[in-house]
Computed example of a mutant assay.
Amino acid sequence: MAVRPLAVRRQAQFEHRNGSSISSIAARLGLPYQTVRTWCRHEGAPDSRFTEDRCFRCRPATPADHAQYAYLLGAYLGDGHLVTSAKVPVLRISCTEVYPDLMDQTERAMLATLANRVQRIRQKGCVNLQSYSKHWPCLFPQAGPGKKHERKIELEPWQRATVLDHPGAFVRGLFHSDGCRAVNRITKAGRTYEYPRYLFANESADILALCGWALDLLGVAWRLNRRNSLSVARRDAVALLDRHVGPKS
């Protein structure tokens, strides 16, 4: 691979982070596809020395923002994926592109937990926030082959202790990823009534149960409204959950 000016490499990486394909970047810059692919695929993969001192599992004395980790854990269980087959593991959290504040919250949680930098990779209808570190598997032992609903999902004792300390942050991460606050409408005796409610949907019965457990910790009444969904609809329960979650933005 020929040596290229650093500015050209950074420009290619910037365009790729903002959604341009490798082939289109290579064509525009007049560079070999393999050159641009190497730049972009390895961009953002830090030397493990920069993150190993921040892993609070490997170094228990390391200061950690456990509330941010609880939020990130909820987001991971909802719309996250940890790739462990790569040379450096990469954590990806998918966010719908219409909610920029949720992307900012997720990025802050990743940075506060372990990440030195977070990339935003645009996909059709969503943005993948991703960060490389060999220590992400230390913090997300639930990672494994296949889809989450096809395998057992259990929290480690130290993770359960974190959720016990920060149930609101954990629930916020879950609802920000796989939940919503919407207006429900019902018609009785010719009259239409409206009321707000929260819904959390996930194909994993284990993750649904974890959401219910955390809601119980907060004292929020809930019920299963479908096989793969739970609902928070009582007025007092919605008001209580508003204090911890609130509408997406």
Rank of each mutant, 00 (worst) to 15 (best):
L217R: 10
S20L: 15
I121H: 14
L210Q: 08
R185V: 05
L139Y: 02
A2D: 12
R122C: 06
V232H: 05
E150L: 12
H149N: 15
C95L: 06
K124E: 12
K87Q: 14
E203N: 15
D47T: 06
L114T: 02
T106F: 09
D53Q: 14
Q11N: 13
P247K: 05
A109I: 02
L91H: 03
K188N: 14
V183F: 11
Q105N: 12
D242S: 08
I22D: 02
A70V: 03
G144A: 09
R151Q: 07
K248F: 00
Y33S: 06
D236Q: 10
T62G: 04
A214K: 06
L240S: 13
A86I: 08
C40Y: 04
F175R: 02
R181S: 08
G219R: 02
E154F: 06
R234C: 07
E107V: 05
H135L: 00
P32T: 07
F170P: 05
E150R: 15
L241T: 07
R181I: 05
K152I: 02
V183P: 11
S94A: 13
R10H: 14
S24E: 13
R108K: 12
D53S: 15
N184L: 04
S94T: 13
E52T: 13
M1F: 02
G144F: 01
L215T: 00
H66A: 10
R41G: 08
A214L: 03
D104Y: 10
S23E: 15
Q123S: 09
C95D: 04
Y193K: 02
K124D: 12
G179Q: 00
C58Q: 05
R54K: 08
Q119E: 14
F14C: 14
R37D: 14
A2V: 15
Y71G: 08
D101F: 04
L91A: 07
C95N: 12
P145R: 12
P141A: 01
Q159N: 03
I93D: 11
L72E: 07
F50V: 15
R243G: 13
C211K: 06
T187E: 11
R223A: 08
A61Y: 02
T62S: 07
R172K: 11
F56Q: 00
R151N: 01
H166N: 07
Y195N: 03
Y198W: 04
A7M: 07
R181H: 10
W158N: 01
R185L: 11
R9E: 12
E52P: 06
R4A: 10
R120D: 01
S231T: 07
T162D: 03
G168Y: 04
K188W: 02
A70W: 00
H176D: 15
A70M: 04
R243L: 14
Y195T: 06
Q123C: 11
S229A: 14
R17N: 15
M103P: 10
V90Q: 02
A64E: 00
K147C: 09
Q119Y: 06
L77M: 09
D65W: 01
R243V: 05
R185N: 09
R191L: 12
D65Y: 01
E43M: 08
Y99A: 03
H81W: 10
G125N: 10
R223L: 07
D165H: 12
R160L: 15
F56V: 10
M110F: 05
A27Y: 12
T35M: 05
T38G: 11
D47N: 14
V245I: 08
Q68A: 10
L155V: 06
R197H: 08
V245L: 05
T113P: 14
R9S: 09
R172A: 11
N184V: 00
L129R: 06
